[in-house]
Design a protein around this nucleic acid. Structure first.
Lengths: 223, 223
DNA sequence: GTTTGTGAAGTATTTCACAGCC
DNA sequence: GGCTGTGAAATACTTCACAAAC
């Protein structure tokens, strides 16, 4: 709690909610109707207290002695996350990566529909990518505005990504899934999430020294 | 600092180091020889104090009044992260996603070399993927052991991912880049990082209500 | 007996702010 | 004058532990 009467939900809590949504979806598919924070925590490697606390930011969804109704909690969380609708998404960049994104079958079932694909290269424009025809980037503004699109996926080379992202924001995009290995700053009414497998690998190698070698002062290294 | 003389580097710090490595690499390419925490912070949207504090866990790399020598700090961070060597990596799952991973040109320049690809499906075994021939999963143990491989990338369907990951751990893998949408728990000498674009999108939609609507008590929703 | 929801306590992480150095 | 390195302060986040509910 920051001030007196009004506070914001911690970012880290918001990022865990989709995890709960995913698990609850699996449970529902398995016809499990009730789940306790303990059981959910076991599936997700999250403490039961954490789950209860997270949910408590949004309301009271459980029953003491029983647990949570799977279908009900799932529905509530989807509503809270604004997942109870279809989101139209644009893709910028249809190189190898962009094509993999379009053909990734995981988005549609979760309500994210790629409705347009753009590329700067004249070679790409007009080509088919999945069931979309690649459009020139000059059409981005029109499509985003006329369709009221709020979400973009950026899969252009790093050198172009900054410019593309700034333009998308100008055109009204409020959420960006960025696959380019760059850091961009965005206005605070815009959210960006970076997908960078190289960074992920590079932070794991740190732990790859065999028997955790670390100096008695915490400094790292053998010397 | 937790106890008396020995403490561990916070995980979040380790995860930021690759960001510094990336920025320093860019600066070096631009022939910038010295950078201050202020300048680096601007590029990365991280406060200068944060950067200095992070670096202080590992030693003293800067010069007062001047800043950090780009080449030197880069080299030190690469050493700290164990990036001053080539890491051989295996890939499991060569469907659409796995193929995109193999052909992703971002790994090799950073020293991550995919040296073997495995798949369960007899249709895939024997096929070429990039310059690799897909091997049956039955050969994983032998290849990982004989080659001393520590890192694996998992790009199999969610239903198989848990089993694959457990087997990889049995075979000696210590770092896993997981593209499957599942939560797995791993022994504490194993590191896992999940890449899940759907979760990323789902946590952004939360912020997509137009003028941040939030009840005076912090509860979310219009009612 | 079991499990939620939640203040309070405990940790972790970030930021401040300044002495010391270039 | 500018900037690092770092204890101390501030903030953020997680876990505890227990009253209330079933």
């Amino acid at each position: 709690m920051t001030q007196s009467t009004r506070w914001t939900i911690p970012e880290v809590v918001v990022q865990r909610l989709p995890l709960y949504v995913r698990s609850l979806g699996e449970l529902r598919k398995e016809r499990v109707s009730v789940v306790s924070s303990q059981e959910l925590g076991k599936k997700l490697q999250i403490t039961p207290a954490q789950i209860r606390k997270d949910l408590s930011y949004f309301g009271r969804f459980g029953k003491q002695g029983k647990g949570y109704n799977v279908a009900y909690l799932l529905e509530e969380l989807r509503r809270i996350l604004y997942l109870d609708r279809e989101w139209r998404v644009v893709l910028v960049g249809v190189g190898r990566l962009g094509r993999a994104v379009v053909s990734y079958p995981g988005f549609a079932p979760e309500g994210f529909k790629v409705v347009a694909a753009f590329d700067e290269s004249p070679d790409q424009v007009g080509q088919k990518v999945g069931n979309l025809t690649v459009r020139p980037v000059t059409e981005m503004e029109h499509i985003i505005n006329s369709d009221g699109i709020k979400i973009a996926i950026v899969a252009v080379p790093a050198s172009q990504a900054g410019g593309v992202i700034n333009r998308l924001i100008d055109y009204g995009i409020k959420a960006i899934l960025n696959y380019a290995p760059i850091s961009v700053d965005v206005p605070k009414d815009v959210t960006i999430r970076n997908i960078d497998p190289v960074l992920a690998l590079q932070s794991m190698t740190f732990y790859l020294r065999s028997p955790r070698v670390q100096g008695p002062d915490g400094r790292v290294g053998k010397a």
